[in-house]
Amino acid sequence: MVPSEQVAILIMPMTEIPLTLLLFFASIIAGIFGALSGLGGGSILTPLLTLAFGVDLRYAIGTSLISVIATSSGSASAYLKEGYTNVKLAIFLALATTFGAIAGAMSATYFNKSILSIIFGAVLLQSAWMSLKPSAPKEEMNAPNKTAQWLELYGTCPTTEGVIQYRAQNVPTGFSLMFLAGWLSGLLGIGSGAIKVLAMDRAMKLPFKVSTTTSNFMIGITAAASAGIYLSRGYIDPILAAPVMLGVLTGSLIGAKLLPKVQNKILRSIFTVLVALIGIQMISKGLRGGGS
């Protein structure tokens, strides 16, 4: 792998115009990959900014939060139309991610950049691992559950084998995992979609399509919870965030259009390897102590 510091030095002496264009096109690619893989563009944006562009981690976190909201805004309305997103489920779990995100943003100042870099790498490795392990068929998908009944966490989902009924299981576990997802989102400026899918798909035994689309709906809400805190700390730089927002929006719209035409499996494995490599890179950078 190319030493990241060298790349950063190559790119840095540029003036605003070429840098803005480069950021814009890099963000389009991040947005396309994020939309196609379902992992979100935010997970690769912070490493891209810090490792390739040499941006300070704090500016990168603020910029990434903006990209997360842009991705979620670009695709959430499209998914709602398809009838997979469960709004009650999203709103109930957003209770956990919102408070988690505020806690994460508040605690961010207690961690130094090296530790943040290592946590970030670990989260990326978890994302990669999640996309490698396929979702297992769930027998207890529609089992009676008192908590789910009271909170109305059930619904129907169209599949190739017809419409299936589902009901959330293990609600307290799912809720706790969502708090963790929110905390990491607030701490690192990411959407933490992989942990949200883990909570819904694995813990709460919900259909995979419902989990991923509901996660996408929630990601923007979670990011908005900590965005105000980062804005007030001066982490959101307009000149960095503007091309990234426009690029990621464009990219996720292109990605959503391409989605039915490309072979998802190949793309998913390419992205998984990429995310894992970046994760290792972030961890090694953190361990070396240069978490800029």
Binding site: T15, E16, I17, V55, D237
Partner: peptide, 8 residues
């Protein structure tokens, strides 16, 4: 457009 940015 000709300014040098300072994000490092």
């Amino acid at each position: 457009g000709d300014m040098i940015p300072h994000y490092k």
